[in-house]
Simulated scan of single mutants.
Amino acid sequence: MFSPHGPTLRELAVQALSSVEHGYDLLAPKFDHTPFRTPDSVLEAVEGALEPMGPFDRGLDLCCGTGAGVDVLRTVCREGVTGVDISAGMLAVGREQARAVGQPDVTWVRGDARALPFGPVFDLVVSFGAFGHFLPAELPGLFAQVHSVLRPGGRFAFPVAAPPRPASPWYWALLGFDTAMRVRNALWRPPFVMYYRAFRLGDVRRELVRAGFRVELVALPGFGQRPDGSPRCRMVVATRESGTAGA
């Protein structure tokens, strides 16, 4: 699962026994060589689905990490791109990588997604692979924060994969991972919140609507269909309605 340039088992163990913030600070130099980074195929699919909806003016990559989603925003946004993350280490890597490839127009901001340091200045917010770090009870506040930084008519977009079926090995792998994390958090402090099965589409849609969004689902056809004909991967597009206020 990891390239030779990725973290060692010992490094992963140290990171897993840290807080979310400090764990990602430690992981940051090798993060792009792990399977935790969003695959390019997902980024490209979201970019392709967003292009017909744009162009947008200003974009925000929420929980940006080292900036995998920044290139998506730079393609579909005309004015400015901002990445926000709680980990200073991840931001430092993202900033250095952007500088190395000549992307000085990206603004990197350290901040908590549950208390965003922005006003309603963005037309598009995206996020990739970060929602496992939020407990279900935190979704209303998180979505209210996203709502508060979007201009009326602005969109909040993110991919969601269909959950694996019980017959799939991935189902049991994810169940085992979540169980191990819950045991770890029951026995060790500080907690490391990372639950892959806690972000359920039905709950997400309900909380987005409560926060004042109009929600639609866009199939990402490049990932195929399940046996019942439903898409294996969708993009959630939540639009801030004019005149609505967040929860």
Rank of each mutant, 00 (worst) to 15 (best):
A98N: 02
T239R: 13
G229C: 09
R58C: 13
T244Y: 07
V70M: 14
L26N: 04
G65E: 10
S127M: 03
R151G: 09
G246Y: 08
P159S: 02
V146R: 12
G48W: 07
F134D: 04
D25I: 00
P39N: 04
F134E: 05
M235W: 02
P120L: 05
P166Y: 05
L150R: 08
D178G: 10
L62N: 02
R234M: 08
F36C: 00
D203L: 10
H133E: 06
E51V: 14
V146I: 13
G202C: 09
E47L: 11
A247Y: 10
R184K: 13
D178R: 04
W170S: 14
H22G: 03
V121D: 05
P191F: 02
L150H: 07
R58K: 13
V42E: 05
Q103I: 03
P4Y: 13
G69E: 09
R114T: 14
S168W: 01
F36R: 10
G141L: 03
A238W: 12
Y196D: 09
D40H: 12
T8K: 09
A238T: 01
R37F: 00
V20I: 11
P164K: 03
A162P: 01
L50A: 05
R205Y: 07
R214F: 07
R210Q: 15
G202V: 15
F2V: 11
H133L: 07
P4E: 05
L9H: 08
F131R: 06
S148H: 13
L27V: 01
V121W: 07
L217S: 14
F31A: 06
C233V: 15
V146Y: 05
T179F: 14
S3E: 15
E21P: 08
S87T: 05
P104G: 11
A219W: 04
G246Q: 05
D203Q: 14
A100H: 02
R234L: 13
G89N: 02
R182W: 11
M181V: 03
A144W: 04
A173L: 15
H33Y: 09
P164A: 02
L17V: 00
H33P: 03
P104S: 10
A16Q: 07
S230E: 15
A173G: 06
L91C: 08
R210Y: 04
G153L: 10
F134S: 00
T38S: 15
V106Q: 02
P231W: 08
G83V: 07
R165Q: 08
A45L: 13
L27C: 01
P4F: 15
P7T: 02
P55R: 04
F131W: 11
L220N: 01
G89I: 05
H33W: 03
W172T: 02
P231S: 13
G176Y: 04
F213K: 01
G132V: 03
Q97I: 03
R99Y: 06
P55I: 11
W188T: 15
F192G: 00
R74S: 09
R155D: 10
A100L: 04
A130Y: 06
V183S: 10
V209K: 11
L60Q: 06
L12W: 07
A16N: 08
T244F: 12
T66L: 08
S148I: 11
D228E: 09
V14W: 04
E44Y: 00
F223C: 06
L142Y: 02
D105Q: 13
T34C: 07
V101W: 03
L12F: 01
A113V: 00
G212R: 13
G154A: 06
H5A: 15
E96H: 03
S148R: 15
A219E: 08
P35Q: 02
G153I: 09
A219T: 08
V93Q: 13
E47T: 15
L208M: 02
